[in-house]
Design a binder for these strands. Structure first.
Length: 383
DNA sequence: GACACGTGGGT
DNA sequence: TACCCAAGTGT
């Protein structure tokens, strides 16, 4: 039994609550009404009060882009996708290469493949309307536990328990949960379910995420500004930065490979091929590369080239992926053709529309800077 | 549960 | 520099 003088968490799993249920969510929503970030896909509280509805297509598109990706990075891509494809039907009708090309640089390219597949499913099997329930949303490609809950709450006012990385941090601090993630995820979700109000569940979820992004930050959280600081166990103990506890990370091995940038005489076109649909950089374009081996003495010399030419070494690029570091030896050659190798030549003007991952842009930039330079009509005047 | 899966920015 | 981190999902 709690005393009135001891502020307690709202409805921890299995506990009674003698503080008004929703006291925390109420304080958080008041904070959100004043401090919500204006984001391109977001309907602000005042707009919502005036009758504006969130567009499920917009919410879905932004949520998929935001998976493991910063808000700052997503903004430009979100605007571009909405400009190219204003509706889910338009996106569904787009060629896959065009979608992959528009996604190039955002990373985690399976998201783009699933995005396109999801758009097609919504257009063909759901009459262009996203399902309004978590269960329905979960059947769609690229929509997992988090994204289904987020879309249900934000676009359809379903009181779903939304748990992302921000909310994990907020809640583990609030309750001093020291079970390492992801094992502690179920407990976090139970707490979130207990906090989620039936009114404004979407704003509640967005408020929790904004709080994590701007106040309850990984380092040096601004507890003095936090609407939930009262009764926050980590705050009371002064151990905020110890949460969330995460499982130890594995070391990142090094791999080696080679890339071959063939430049066609005359128009400066670059020889590209399409990577396999699955696996690293799946479905994206590249100058031919060797396998990326663990051994330093792997075949990375000119002898590993896709076709004979006067290959010269341009240098190497280092690129760090999620689970390994890659060093790519870059070779270049001026050629007349590709001697029957699988692939195609793309002119510098055409490269902007090609699905080139950042790593491959690095390799091309090193071997043939002119290929990726802004084309003359678009180049900004030097001052 | 473990692992594969990108990239850019911050400290 | 070498980490850490970001509105996770699929297998």
């Amino acid at each position: 039994m709690r005393t009135a003088s001891r502020p307690a968490p709202d409805e921890p799993p299995g506990a009674s609550h003698d503080e008004a249920p929703g006291a925390r969510s109420g304080r958080l929503l008041e904070w959100y009404d004043r401090h919500a970030r204006a984001l391109p896909w977001r309907v602000l509280p005042a707009e919502r009060a005036a009758g504006k509805q969130a567009d499920p297509y917009h919410i879905w598109l932004s949520e998929v882009m935001l998976q493991q990706t910063t808000v700052a990075t997503v903004k430009a891509y979100y605007e571009k996708f909405l400009r190219l494809w204003p509706t889910v039907e338009a996106l569904a009708s787009a060629p896959a290469e065009t979608v992959m090309g528009a996604w190039a640089g955002l990373g985690y390219y399976a998201r783009a493949r699933n995005l396109h597949a999801c758009a097609k499913a919504v257009a063909a099997e759901h009459k262009g309307r996203f399902p309004a329930t978590e269960t329905g949303l979960r059947t769609l490609p690229g929509i997992g536990e988090y994204t289904a809950a987020a879309i249900a709450a934000i676009a359809f006012d379903v009181p779903a328990a939304v748990v992302d990385g921000n909310i994990e941090r907020v809640v583990t601090r609030l309750h001093a949960i020291d079970t390492p993630l992801p094992a502690g995820k179920a407990l976090v979700k139970a707490h979130v379910a207990g906090m989620t109000p039936s009114r404004r569940p979407g704003d509640f979820a967005q408020a929790m995420m904004d709080l994590g992004a701007t106040i309850c930050t990984p380092r040096r959280p601004a507890c003095v500004l936090c609407p939930l600081s009262e009764g926050c166990l980590a705050r009371i103990a002064g151990t905020m930065e110890l949460y969330p506890v995460k499982a130890a990370k594995k070391p990142k091995p090094a791999r080696q490979g080679a890339a071959f940038v063939a430049v066609r005489a005359g128009d400066g076109a670059i020889f590209l091929r399409r990577r396999p649909e699955t696996g690293m950089l799946g479905g994206m374009d590249e100058p031919p590369t060797t396998e990326w081996g663990v051994r330093r003495d792997g075949a990375t010399g000119a002898g590993a080239a896709p076709f004979p030419a006067a290959w010269t070494r341009a240098g190497s690029v280092v690129h760090v992926f999620t689970h390994f570091q890659l060093t790519l030896e870059v070779w270049r050659a001026d050629v007349a053709d590709a001697a029957g190798a699988e692939g195609r030549f793309v002119t510098p003007a055409g490269l902007v529309a090609v699905a080139l991952p950042t790593l491959m842009k690095k390799a091309i930039e090193l071997a043939e800077p002119a290929a990726l330079a802004p084309s003359p009509p678009q180049r900004k005047r030097q001052i």
